[in-house]
Amino acid sequence: MSTLAIIDDDKLLHRATELLLRKVSPDTTILHYYSGLEALEYLQGDPPEEPDIILLDLNMPIMDGWQFLDALVDDPRFETKSWKIYICSSSMDPRDIQKANDYEQVYGYLGKPITRANLKSVMENI
């Protein structure tokens, strides 16, 4: 049993991840968040179910991926967490990739679209 959180305003990614996981890792629980703030509020509430994997979009309204990462860095409660955060963005801008690598919390960079093979290797790497 594993838990995966999707933080993305793009509903298609939620649906795609859902459908792909059905093939790759059917018993995974999925948590859906449509902005960084939504996810942050959930995680700060000391939830019973914590994600093993976070797929984080960069370009979102209200609180974007960078702001979400900064909020994690600033909150000492998250220091001990061992979530694997994957940036999941259609931006292939090298500056974004570099910036993402500068965050200790970021485990990897997944491009969009998300593929069955990508998701499989993410799930096998928990």
Partner: peptide
């Protein structure tokens, strides 16, 4: 990056999914 690549990669995402889902779900 944001306004062309976004929709383009979404279209690609859908064609990936069409491959693995059954006929009724394709309609959505």
């Amino acid at each position: 990056a944001h306004h062309l690549r976004g929709p383009a990669s979404s279209i690609k995402q859908i064609t990936e999914l069409l491959d693995i889902v059954e006929q009724p779900e394709q309609q959505e």
